[in-house]
Nucleic acid binder design. Structure first.
Lengths: 243, 243
DNA sequence: CAGTGGTCTAGACCACTGG
DNA sequence: CAGTGGTCTAGACCACTGG
């Protein structure tokens, strides 16, 4: 799929904002101006701006214009990028250590999404400056994992390796306590609080291509979620009662 | 702000889908048909459909049409509504108990968003079938809380009471352990795992109108987050390292 | 092939901001 | 008041799906 007009405009504006051409709280050129500058219709320019709004980079005020977001918390999510980018941006050393790499039968909770007899399962530890901050288990279909080596998955994030254009993902976030082996691998006391996250990632075609479980020590990590329209459903915003 | 054309169409389509007029995995009428039915342009119809897509209710395939989502997990988020609606939908009894209601000075971590000497602080317990599942503390500006009674906040969700059109919200989710008083109020053992959530809610004008902290027993609750475009930033999806 | 969604255009009217 | 973003229209071309 080739780059669309509005994506190109969004990318260009994002680059300009991140380069500091327009500071936090300052006005962007009006939609009419941008429309003339880029030689695109106002609708296309708006579409690019809406995309940046979703990322938390800009906001708009009717009658005034589009402003670069100034609330640092709201910016966080849009600029977050990968954990690796986050770490190297802070000058910290990011490392990945493979604990296990094998083709095996998926557990039943994973079979719900990956209905196969054999899948590739990889257990990895993510470290920042040598300190573990995530214990990750990834399952992917045998066909997608067949070309991968243990060195590959130690070098690169999984989603870069499988060679399939990705669609969306669904993620659940829960709290728990570190089990004995988890505690040992993460270097935290057994029973200490952890964030548990499960992610089901789909390809552009809607096929499930990755299932992963992540365990984060509670004292090191938190999730940030931006809720664009609070509406009446604000009380929910993703919370679900289990059992 | 009065209802827009695309909101009205989205609401109508949502109602029809939830009523089962079009089953999971089945095709909706084409954009051209909907456009004719509603007497709206195709652009407006698409805007309504995009909104439903964000909610996880429908998905589209080029050359084929718009389908009602069949993946139950992806539907969850869109249909969630408030916790109260979730509970009554399951035939469970939802209850709200006010533990404290006072005008006071906000703690420093709240002053970051609500810069005032006096704010209304309300501590509430949410119960499902008599069992506590959330301990909530809400702070709001004195002016917005001046007309509220203790009975008001026991009866209704806060966002319905303050009489201000809401904009977006930013939410952080972390794991932790129940402190002594939290444990007593939630009816769980001290030190047991909990989800801790902080939400900063803005009005339509971008002003911060509510700051709230929520403590959920880990065994009862989880968050579901839909990530529409995984892209390269999939490893992040809102995770942030703290400290 | 006819029909679908994905993208884009040029133009319009409105509510709203600031001066 | 002139200028802004918010919404909406009618029309166009394209890539893609299924038969």
């Amino acid at each position: 799929m080739r780059q669309t007009r509005y994506q190109a405009i969004a990318d260009d504006l994002r680059r300009r904002i991140e380069a500091g051409a327009v500071g936090p709280g300052r006005l962007l050129p009006s939609e009419a101006e941008l429309s003339a500058d880029y030689g695109a219709s106002r609708v296309t320019v708006r579409r690019a701006l809406e995309r940046l709004r979703e990322e938390g980079l800009v906001e708009s005020r009717q009658g005034l214009g589009w402003l670069v977001a100034s609330d640092p918390l709201r910016q966080t999510l849009g600029r977050l990028g990968t954990i690796e980018a986050q770490l190297t941006g802070e000058g910290r050393r990011s490392e990945r250590r493979v604990l296990d790499f094998r083709f095996t039968r998926p557990p039943t909770r994973v079979q719900r999404w990956l209905d196969a007899d054999v899948v590739l399962r990889v257990r990895r530890l993510n470290l920042a400056d040598g300190e573990p901050f995530a214990l990750v288990t990834v399952w992917c279909p045998e066909a997608l994992g067949a070309e991968l080596s243990r060195a590959d998955v130690e070098r690169s994030p999984f989603y870069e390796l499988i060679g399939v254009p990705l669609g969306g993902a669904t993620q659940t976030i829960a709290a728990g306590s570190a089990g004995a082996s988890e505690a040992a691998e993460l270097g935290v006391p057994e029973g200490s609080p952890v964030l548990r996250c499960q992610r089901v990632t789909r390809s552009g075609d809607g096929e499930v291509v990755l299932v992963s479980e992540h365990v984060f020590p509670a004292h090191l990590t938190e999730f940030v979620v931006e809720i664009p329209h609070a509406d009446a459903s604000i009380a929910a915003s993703g919370l679900r009662l289990v059992e």
